[in-house]
Design a protein around this nucleic acid. Structure first.
Lengths: 336, 336
DNA sequence: CTGAAAGCGCTTACAG
DNA sequence: CTGAAAGCGCTTACAG
């Protein structure tokens, strides 16, 4: 159907070997021949079958990206950062969404390997994610983004989430808050544990105790942020400030508090995590701990590219970027 | 490196042909043999090389999705709709972002074809997009989403954008507005032309004339929406309402108007298009013309799946969904 | 600088 | 029900 190097060989009178070499700009073939062959190829509308090529070279210029949920605005920018960098080097990306379901994650790893992807960039769902990859393919380069499983010798690019939790909590305490709630996401991930640990350590250090009724965990999206805020309100033990483990949760909390007639920030202060685009929207103005997502994606891509190019195993790349506190309008001084 | 059917054949004593058949659950092989072989495969950690398989079957279970910009929240839900459906049928997706640049779109089409994708779902950048695909591959199934090139016999799933433009404009006129501005996106796309045409026809029909100084086109994102709103304000000819050709533009307009001290909706009403998630946010509450993006993605996937399954050419699938006006809080009656 | 040949991992008529 | 063989479209030592 499609035209192949065999067709070009027939047309030009060379063998497929020479055609292949010419098309790959091999130094072993004369310029004259290269020109002749590439002209014929263009004229005939040839497009290389990279699948066949991948079969013999044993890898494709394809890398897989696995994220939990592309509709969480956290991810598109990260993905774009990775794609822009990868594309410059001629790599294409398979994108997989697992919707937070571990079986899907495993299935995607398998599929990526079976499609001969050269590497995987992923935001892992659990501490076992690295093992899952290694069980399926002992050698494929992997770099984790945003979150990293608690494993040794892995590559990851993330922010220092513990420090972020500390920063957010200290900021609120500096504003005079004492009764601070925490609404977090999936506890299986290092990211969520670290953010919460930062919160907990600072609270313990300042007040010597933690009010467990003000600590909630749930799926990290708007509707569950809304739900947990409603739970807190219903339980009647109202905090003066809330730390949300991501902006989506924070948005859900804001929605809920507004619907219950609370004034933000005068009744309750809110701080989020991630600094997604919509947090800076007029009308939202969420104070948050920023994560440079585009850069994380780009750095992950650069890292995996380096792994591709190197013959020897490289020391693990483990980067904890400094989280930046973005002060907008959802936090105010505590009233006495 | 990885284990192949050859290894399994050696281990079990069958030939690769039988192993291949067994693994594909062919009716030509006995259950006993199937079990024996699949046990061995599992024990050995076999994962099928789909690249090799694709080479001989001449297609992979891969479909490409091409969109302008994944960070526009319009797309993630559409992509998810397509992916969820495709995944159920065992298809994986290549995702391509072209950032609105036509050369990138062409490059992506080539790459998808060279990687033997079985079909392409795309939001085209121009009327030529269909020809570009056909030039590279005369037969690959394509379905357009959201926007469709002005070509015959193509498959597309979209909303009736003309009707959407009409609805938005009539709603504003019903509220008593006369001086209505229009801030639109990329004029190369049918979508934008149709939305604007709806606006223009209604305005002409009601007022007999159009104020060209209140009509702007630019790249469809927040910052350019902001920019064009600023232009209108600076020119001093202030409208009482603005139609934005998408929600992102509307958000930029709102940001700009607020910064200039306007009250929305009392000074100026705003209506958008798309109903992205963030338009319903507390603090935003954008009135908009909804596009059921997840469903569009899912329908596109179903359509392409049908094309895969059919031997004869199918009549083109051309679906214009009815756009729904979502009334929230950014439009008010015009003051006299 | 070019060719002949083997092979990447799989599938699939053709035999038996 | 199973095997032997050809082939998918490409690349790459090995010769010359």
């Amino acid at each position: 159907m499609a035209i192949t190097i065999k067709d070009i060989a027939k047309k030009t009178g060379y063998t497929v070997a020479t055609v292949s070499r010419a098309l790959n700009d091999s130094p072993m073939v004369s310029d004259k021949t290269k020109i002749e062959i590439s002209n014929a190829a263009n004229k005939m509308g040839y497009v290389r079958n990279n699948i066949a090529r991948g079969l013999v070279t044993n890898h494709l210029t394809t890398v897989g990206i696995i994220v939990p949920d592309i509709t969480n605005p956290y991810f598109p920018r990260l993905i774009k950062g990775a794609q822009d960098t990868l594309q410059e080097s001629g790599y294409n990306t398979f994108l997989c969404n697992n919707n937070g379901i571990i079986e899907n994650e495993v299935k995607h790893i398998e599929m990526l390997c079976s499609l001969c992807s050269k590497g995987i960039i992923m935001d892992p769902l659990s501490d076992d994610s690295y093992e899952h990859v290694r069980k399926i393919n002992p050698h494929i380069p992997v770099v984790f983004v945003g979150n990293c499983p608690a494993a040794q010798n892995i590559n990851y690019i993330a922010i220092d989430n513990y420090k972020g939790g500390v920063k957010a909590t200290k900021y609120l305490i500096g504003l005079g808050h004492k009764k601070i709630a925490y609404i977090g996401g999936n506890e299986n991930t290092n990211t969520n544990r670290a953010r919460f640990k930062g919160f907990r350590d600072v609270m313990l250090q300042h007040f010597g105790t933690l009010d467990n009724s003000l600590i909630k965990f749930n799926y990290p999206d708007m509707s569950h942020g809304f739900e947990e805020a409603a739970n807190i309100i219903q339980e009647g033990n109202i905090p003066t400030a809330i730390v949300a483990s991501n902006d989506l949760i924070a948005l859900g909390i804001i929605d809920c508090l507004w619907k219950h007639g609370f004034d933000i920030p005068n009744d309750i202060s809110i701080i989020g995590f991630d600094n997604i685009e919509y947090s800076s929207l007029p009308g939202i103005n969420l104070t948050t701990v920023a994560e440079p997502r585009y850069e994380i994606g780009a750095m992950a891509a650069e890292t995996i590219l380096k792994l591709f190019d190197s013959d020897e195993p490289l020391p693990p790349v483990q980067i904890d970027l400094d989280p930046e506190l973005i002060i907008r309008k959802t936090c105010a001084k505590a009233k006495n």
